[in-house]
Design a protein around this nucleic acid. Structure first.
Lengths: 349, 349
DNA sequence: CCAATTTGATTAATCGATTTAGCTCTTCGG
DNA sequence: CCGAAGAGCTAAATCGATTAATCAAATTGG
């Protein structure tokens, strides 16, 4: 059908060697002492025919695929898709393309994805790890491949890490609820052992016990159908009559929770106060508007990229000292958590 | 550091030829008359060392990268990220990986992306085209590469297409507003010549003129800052005193519009009725809940995948008769557009 | 003027797979 | 016992680039 023209075809046409063409294409004309005359002739020709080198061949030879593997829980989740967008944008400028993949927090799927990434020779890995893939990541690390863990991480692994201060984020949110007159604060989270969820619970618990309260917790299994989750939450709210506020550990849990509250006919913030983890551009438009612990998406992405670039530039990655960066969350105080703004916290419309 | 083991290393270890190893790995042992004994020996060994063939080499040789290029306006937009997710999921099962990219509806960026996709040898293209890239896509088509346009398309190009019936979607929405007692309906859209926006306007206009009304239109430039857009819309609403309902042409325009309405202190649906194009899982939680013209995301994705698979299976793509699939939208009637449900339209909580 | 250096370009190996064509050995019919 | 057929495996070309090694011609220095 169509045979793509190769560097050799060009060489033949111009009666030079393919080496020369390669040098010119890669801007090494000066360095490799190619005469300006020949250089221009080659440049003109490849411009004319719109030559595009075959990255596969290039990658095979150089060992660099110029591809980054990005593994997140769910690319359709606004938190992850925003990060994906920023990462894509910035790495693109450096000539990298991204393979995205959603793990659904599933171990088998994640392991398989790592395998696929490997055989595709990706140059670097950005991973929000699912449970149980410690060994797989360890193997990447052993082979000196650049790996960044973000959002959550295995403490046992020696990789760069970018996370937020989940404990403090949750803690501040609960304290804020107390300051607004709520006394019995519940926590709805995922039934998960992952470190970020655990930290959020810890932050919640510390704030509650500091007030001599006792934790009221509901755990929803990962991947549970939204309607079912809503039912669970309705049961949870009904069963805990005294509970007057809830902190939700993820954005989609908050959504189910809001449905539950609405279906029960409760008023926010009068009957029940609400704060969600992960902000969403829509929260400010709800009536009442929904308070949230916002993750600094831009900063997270920037940190991840910065670290990745550093890793990619390293010749021996195993020698480098790895860094754990912990970023601060921002409590977005809106109507759903009462009206008193707390010192040091921005009150927003 | 680490030299990945190749098919040759395996061959050397097992004292067979790399040809044999290749045959076994690709399941052609029977076909190529490799003895069961040798086959098992090879299989056992590659299992033991966890061998992973180099896809770059494979792709170079076979000419198939097993990569699909996906170009959308913005991967952080829930509409596109949902589609991306479904496509990723399904193509993955067939051994394909996806390169996603956001075009921002920018011509230069889109052209550049197509170039990058080409040099990366992607096997197929799924494109929600930005303006002005007709020629670039035409070139792909000329070279017999599988191309699917979706969400919007260039009518001049002979590719498979998956879109929704934008005209009818908008038309139905406006009719619904009329049926609910609204008389002067405005339309807020993008300042864009793209076909999907044009069709939405046509649907709106036909419904309005059928009622002897005259169109009231506001065009927002693509990429305008959200706050500025909100201001524009406030001005629009104030300037058109008699306007009592608005249809927004995209989900993010609806968001800005809702902010404008809120800031002006208007009540929905009493003072002003609202319908958005593109549904969002949050719309049902707004107070009042927001009506929307929902796009059938799952169906769109399924169609796109089906068509792509067909193209990929074709030996001569240029011969194939291309198909344009137009899918129906679903009007989700909620509180923001009044209370009367229209015949044939599902009234939802 | 000859050896040494510089200039400008090329030859050929290599990356890791796939695949065509062919080689060797056994078996079997006649 | 010879030739054909088939079974089982391999050599070597190939995909399209990069790059170390080298070479011929021109230039320079002493």
């Amino acid at each position: 059908m169509k045979k793509k023209t190769s560097i050799h075809d060009i060489a033949k046409q111009l009666k030079v060697s393919s080496t020369t063409v390669s040098f010119v294409i890669n801007g090494k004309a000066k360095e490799k002492r190619i005469s300006v005359a020949v250089e221009e002739r080659v440049l003109k020709y490849i411009e004319k025919i719109g030559f595009q080198p075959n990255m596969m061949a290039k990658s095979l030879r150089t060992g660099k695929s110029k591809i980054i593997g990005l593994m997140v829980e769910n690319i359709a989740d606004p938190f992850f898709s925003s990060i994906a967008r920023i990462i894509e944008e910035n790495t693109y400028k450096l000539g990298y393309k991204i393979f995205h993949s959603s793990t659904d927090n599933d171990t088998t799927k994640s392991k398989d994805l790592i395998k696929v990434f490997r055989e595709r020779q990706v140059d670097g890995y950005i991973i929000a790890p699912a449970p149980g893939i410690e060994d797989d990541i360890q193997r990447l690390v052993n082979d000196g491949l650049p790996v960044i863990q973000f959002d959550r991480y295995f403490t046992s692994l020696d990789t760069d890490v970018v996370v937020i201060d989940n404990e403090e984020g949750a803690n501040t949110a609960v304290k804020h609820l107390f300051d607004n007159g709520y006394a019995n604060i519940g926590f709805v989270t995922l039934d998960s052992k992952q470190v970020q969820m655990h930290d959020r619970f810890t932050g919640y618990k510390k704030a509650v016990t500091a007030k001599k309260g006792k934790p009221i917790e509901l755990k929803i299994p990962y991947g549970m159908d939204e309607e079912l989750a809503t039912e669970k939450m309705k049961g949870f709210i009904v069963a805990n009559k005294k509970m007057d506020a809830i902190l939700f550990a993820t954005n989609y849990l908050a959504i189910s929770g809001l449905m539950a509250i609405r279906q029960l006919g409760l008023r926010i913030p009068e009957d029940i106060g609400v704060i969600g983890f992960d902000d969403n551009s829509h929260f400010s438009l709800f009536s009442p508007s929904i308070s949230a612990v916002a993750q600094p998406v831009q900063e997270i992405s920037d940190e991840v990229i910065k670290k990745l670039i550093t890793c990619l530039g390293e010749k021996d990655n195993k020698k480098r000292r790895k860094e754990i960066t912990v970023l601060k969350t921002i409590l977005k105080v809106r109507e759903s958590s009462g009206n008193n703004s707390v010192a040091g916290i921005k009150k927003i419309g």
